[in-house]
Computed example of a mutant assay.
Amino acid sequence: MLVTGASRGIGVAIARAFAEQGADVMLAARSLPAITDLATELRSQYGVRAVPVQADMADRESLQSLMARVPKELGGLDVVVNNAGILPKAERAENLSWGDWDEALHINLSAPWYLACRAKELMTDGGVIINNASTAAYFPARGLAAYNVSKAALVMLTRVLALEWAAEGVRVVGVAPGKIQTDLVEPVLRWTAKHDLPLNPMRRIGAATEVADLVAFLASEKAGYLTGVTVPVDGGELLTAGAEPGR
């Protein structure tokens, strides 16, 4: 299996969850030292094949090189987790630069589209593609136009690919994490605390392992009749999206 954004947070938890089940894992991220250390850990602890590959989700040639290594390193492919993502700094829509906009769309949407399409070509016996979206796909937030749009589009991409590929035995599903304790979400958590806003109905922050466990389930045969859905893992956050602060 292949997991992108495997150098930290949810990506690390996903890689560990699959390795624990005995899966060989290709780890992709921009930080080679981080995924090299993780690969060493997975090989030592679980006895699986773990291959670190430096890849830039914003660079087309890097993505092409990544996918060219998959059959050489793994021999085949049955699961891809498009986990890599970027949360741009908060900025009103009219103040965004072309570069900021393009970076968010490239990493959060275009890279998952490309990797899914190339992966599907390698899934000769069927497979599962899992896209990591966000609860931000479902409600707008001030200052996060590029992020909101890219994640909403990723949810729709999940549905379209699922529709097109279902008859060929390839399932495409997604997860939509809410407030999870990771470096990426830390600025959001600080802002929420500063303004004394409720986290979610469960009143706690989620753990990366809780997302990873859901991803592992979605990739398993137990979820074999699921495709085209994006499952929230958010402590009920979407239940109150748009509600007035404190309600």
Rank of each mutant, 00 (worst) to 15 (best):
M26D: 03
M26F: 12
M26G: 08
L27G: 03
L27H: 04
A28P: 14
S31T: 10
T36D: 13
T36V: 11
T36A: 11
D37L: 14
D37Q: 14
D37F: 09
D37T: 12
A39R: 01
T40C: 06
T40P: 09
E41P: 11
E41S: 13
R43V: 10
R43N: 12
S44D: 14
Y46I: 03
V48L: 09
R49L: 12
R49A: 05
V51R: 06
P52K: 07
P52L: 03
V53R: 00
V53Y: 01
Q54A: 13
D56K: 06
D56Y: 02
M57H: 02
M57P: 01
A58M: 04
A58H: 00
D59V: 10
D59S: 04
E61M: 13
L63P: 01
L63A: 06
L63T: 00
Q64V: 10
Q64E: 13
S65V: 03
L66K: 02
L66D: 01
L66M: 05
L66T: 07
M67S: 11
A68Y: 05
A68N: 07
R69Q: 14
P71K: 02
P71F: 04
K72M: 11
G75C: 07
G75P: 01
G76I: 04
G76C: 12
D78G: 12
V81G: 01
N82F: 00
N83S: 10
A84G: 12
G85V: 10
G85M: 08
I86E: 06
I86V: 15
L87R: 06
P88I: 10
A90E: 14
E91N: 15
E91Y: 01
R92Y: 11
R92V: 12
A93K: 15
A93S: 15
A93R: 14
E94I: 00
E94A: 02
E94K: 05
L96N: 08
S97D: 14
G99F: 05
D100C: 14
W101A: 04
E103C: 14
A104W: 00
I107N: 00
N108S: 09
N108Q: 07
N108T: 08
A111D: 00
W113N: 02
Y114S: 00
L115H: 02
L115S: 02
L115C: 08
C117K: 10
C117R: 13
C117E: 10
R118P: 03
K120N: 12
K120S: 15
K120H: 14
K120G: 12
E121I: 12
E121V: 15
L122H: 08
M123G: 10
M123T: 09
T124E: 11
D125A: 15
D125K: 14
D125F: 09
D125Q: 08
D125H: 08
G127A: 15
G127S: 13
I129L: 06
I129P: 15
I129C: 07
I130Y: 03
N131H: 11
N132I: 14
A133M: 03
A133K: 03
S134H: 09
S134N: 11
S134Y: 01
T135V: 15
A136H: 11
A137M: 03
F139S: 15
P140H: 08
P140N: 02
R142C: 00
G143P: 06
L144T: 15
A146M: 04
Y147T: 06
N148M: 09
N148Y: 08
V149A: 07
V149H: 05
S150Y: 00
S150I: 02
S150G: 05
S150R: 05
A152R: 05
A152M: 09
V155T: 04
